[in-house]
Amino acid sequence: MNLAEKVRSISGEDVLSCYQCGLCSGSCPVRFAMDLSPTQVVRLVQVGNIEKIFESNTFWICSTCFSCYARCPRKINITKIMEALRQIRLRRDQDKIALSDIPKEELKILPPIALVSNFRKTTA
């Protein structure tokens, strides 16, 4: 999975419908402290330039207030995109496994210590 696909998968949001109206940035209470605006972040996700987003502080500054999502005319949940970006940074090179990737059959039989010790080693 490349980074753009990862953002899409973790956030569950498809940003292609964004038409760059800027309402998300205009609604963002912490825009003043961000180096890229939420609108620019969405654009960079569209074109797949996630590394450029990672050079910015934007997704760390986001305070999860849901204002952008509440107002986006395309109903894009930008708040979830910010979370996905934070998660990718937190898990980078460590997210070998996620609980939701484990098949249910396995979940029924694996000893808890196996699960816990695995997550300690393989997730952020």
Binding site: I10, S11, K80, E83, A98, S100, D101
Partner: peptide
């Protein structure tokens, strides 16, 4: 505590 928004997280 805080709404956790990653789709792949259950914990």
């Amino acid at each position: 505590v805080f709404p956790f928004l990653a789709n792949d997280d259950i914990m």
